[in-house]
Design a protein around this nucleic acid. Structure first.
Lengths: 163, 163
DNA sequence: AAAATAAGTCAATATGGCTGACGTAAACGT
DNA sequence: ACGTTTACGTCAGCCATATTGACTTATTTT
C-alpha cells in the first residue's frame, strides 16, 4: 500500500512527457515538470488519506469527520463559521457530520462568552485521542514517503510496484 | 481563492501545537511539525483541484473524468486494468466515467495487438486539448503557490486571509 | 475442452457534497 | 425599542462518486 508510483505502467508504447509545460524555475523547484508535481499531489493525497480511512471506518466515520476533528483539535475554540471557511463546504454539509461527532462525544460545543450566538468548538477527550491516532498514522506515512524521496529515490521509483 | 492558509483563525484561545510529534528530521524536512505538513496537503489538494473543477463542470464532467483524461494522456495505450490500479477504484466506478468520455469523443479505445481482450486507451484530440487546459490551470496555481512559499513566505502566511 | 483473464454491465447502497427554504436566538443600528 | 443582520441549525431533495455482488462476453491459456 505504499506505492506512490507514477512512471511504471506495463503497456506504455510512447510516453515522452508531451507538451506539458514546465514551471518557471526561478522559484527553485528542481525543474520538475509541472505534470509530475500534479501527479505526485494526487498520489500523495490518495495514499495519505487512505490510511486514516480504515481507522475511521471502524468508528463509522468518514473523511469529513476526520477533517472536522483535525481542525478543531488544532484550533480549539474555533467557531462553526471558521470551520466552514477552512473546509469550504456549506453549513448543511458540515451540519450532519458535526452533529454525529457531538452526539458521539468527540466534539464539545460551548456558547461564546462575548457573543452567545457563537458555538465554540472543542475536542472532547475522545476526540483528542482520535486526532492523535490519525496524526500518528499520517506521520508514519509521511516518514515512509520522505524515505523514498531521499537520495536515489527517483531510480527506485522508476522500478517499483504497480501492475 | 488563493488562500492556502493555516494559522490565522479569529478565535483561537490556546493553540500551541499540542502533542503532535515531529518527523524524524534525518530526511531533511526542515523540522516542520508533521501536523503542518498534513494540513498543507489538505489545502493544496483542495485549492488545486478546485480550479480544474470549474472548467470541468462546464463540460458536464467531474473530478473522476479529470483523472482519467490526465492519466490516459500521460500514458497513452494504457489498459483499463492499469487505470484501475492507478486510481484505486473499482471497475464499476470507472465504467460510467470512461463510457461518458468515450461517447463524447475525449477518449479512444483500441483492441490490443497481441491480446485482443485488452482495450488500450488513448486520448482523442479533444481529450488532449482538455488535458492541456487542465495542466495549464494547475501549473498556474502551482506557480502561485511556490511564489508564496519563496523566502519570507512563512511570515506572509501568518498574516493573511481567512475570516 | 476447460479454466482463467480483460472488460463491460445491472442493481442496490452509501457518502458527502450541493441548493433552497425556513426557523431561532442573539447582537447591532438607528 | 424595533427592525435588521448575524450565527447557527435543520428539513427536503438532488447529484456525483464510490462501494459490493452477480453475471455476460470475448479471448487467451493451460
Amino acid at each position: 500500500m505504499a506505492d506512490v508510483n507514477v512512471s511504471t505502467l506495463s503497456h506504455s508504447p510512447k510516453d515522452p512527457a508531451k507538451g506539458a509545460g514546465k514551471l518557471d524555475d526561478s522559484q527553485g523547484n528542481g525543474g520538475i515538470p509541472a505534470v509530475e508535481l500534479i501527479e505526485l499531489l494526487f498520489f500523495a493525497y490518495r495514499d495519505f488519506v487512505g490510511d486514516a480511512d480504515e481507522l475511521l471506518a471502524r468508528l463509522g466515520f468518514g473523511r469529513a469527520h476526520h477533517r472536522v476533528v483535525h481542525f478543531v483539535n488544532r484550533h480549539p475554540g474555533m467557531r462553526v463559521a471558521d470551520l466552514l471557511a477552512v473546509l469550504k463546504i456549506t453549513k448543511q454539509s458540515l451540519g450532519r457530520v458535526l452533529r454525529e461527532l457531538v452526539d458521539n462525544g468527540y466534539i464539545d460545543q460551548k456558547a461564546g462568552a462575548t457573543d452567545r450566538r457563537e458555538r465554540l468548538l472543542y475536542v472532547a477527550p475522545k476526540g483528542e485521542e482520535l486526532a492523535r491516532q490519525l496524526v500518528t498514522l499520517q506521520t508514519r506515512r509521511f516518514a515512509r514517503a520522505l524515505n523514498e524521496c531521499g537520495p536515489g529515490a527517483r531510480e527506485q521509483r522508476e522500478s517499483s510496484s504497480l501492475p
